[in-house]
């Protein structure tokens, strides 16, 4: 049994493997003063016993070894850990970019890891906004077009054509929001790192996502620029109640979050 011990994390008392439906009833408090239930820390993203390993020939690299993770609605959750501890892998699994070997992922109480590929594409397009360390903008497109890309993907040719005015307005508004209202026609290579990252944030927001998944959004930026980006994210969280899951290896940034999940060698460490 020593084998299993090394392959999976010890279950921690703070994160019991409970089905989300059961958990939901526990998180809702009905008071006499309000007719509607006040949601307190409703988990919007949750994983149970997540396993992921990479296989290279016969060589198996276990990256995640039973991760139980919870991100609550309207909160900022930061994932922190050493390089190679599996932070990005976890974020990709949360964002349906990849599927786990074992374990379950829930978004809004619905399981996502076993959905067919089309539905996962749709989910990723509509409900998640992804931000990466290296911005990942399309070099052929202008700032505005980059921001509009998720909308173009979700809308067909004719629907897009019909809605192009509103969509463009919204994209401009988002670019204004991140302070890039004057750089609409610039190509990514004509922008600075901070500007590119702000464009990426605007792009992540265009389809009105529920959750923003950010993989070291400031990792490639200097402290000052990183600060600006973080301020934008914080503002989005405070003003629009956007749920943010942010991977970082910077402790001070992680500390600003509502909750911190620390990964160590593929397992969640209790803080």
């Amino acid at each position: 049994m020593s084998n299993t011990m090394s392959d999976s994390c010890l279950s921690t008392p703070t994160s019991p493997a409970v089905a989300p439906a059961e958990k939901r009833s526990g998180t809702q408090i009905n008071t006499d003063r309000f007719d509607t239930p006040i949601e307190v820390d409703r988990p919007i993203l949750q994983t149970i016993g997540l396993h992921k390993s990479y296989r290279k020939g016969q060589h198996v690299v276990p990256v995640l070894r039973g991760v139980d993770f919870v991100a609550n609605e309207g909160r900022v959750t930061s994932i922190i850990g050493q390089s190679g501890s599996g932070k990005s892998t976890l974020l990709h699994l949360l964002g349906t970019l990849d599927v786990p070997d074992q374990g379950e992922i829930y978004f809004d109480e619905k399981r996502t890891d076993n959905l067919p590929i089309r539905q996962r594409d749709k989910l990723r397009n509509g409900k998640f906004g992804l931000i990466f360390q290296f911005y990942h903008l399309l070099p052929e497109l202008s700032t505005l077009e980059n921001v509009l890309t998720p909308a173009m993907i979700s809308h067909g040719l004719f629907r897009y054509w019909a809605a192009r005015k509103q969509l463009k307005e919204r994209a401009k508004h988002l670019l204004d929001l991140v302070g890039l209202g004057h750089r609409l026609t610039h190509k990514p290579r004509e922008l600075s790192g901070g500007e590119m990252q702000r464009t990426a944030i605007a792009r992540a927001l265009i389809s009105n996502p529920k959750v923003l998944l950010a993989d070291e959004p400031t990792g490639n930026l200097d402290r000052q620029t990183g600060r600006e980006v973080l301020n934008i994210l914080r503002k989005l969280n405070e003003e629009q109640g956007l749920t943010i899951v942010m991977v970082t290896h910077d402790q001070t940034i992680a500390d600003e979050a509502d909750s911190i999940v620390r990964l160590f060698e593929g397992c969640v460490e209790t803080v």
Partner: peptide
């Protein structure tokens, strides 16, 4: 390749 990855991360389908 990378742009294809980006498009997929934004929800583009394989067929697309």
């Amino acid at each position: 390749t990378k742009d294809i990855g980006i498009l997929k991360s934004l929800g583009a389908s394989g067929g697309g």
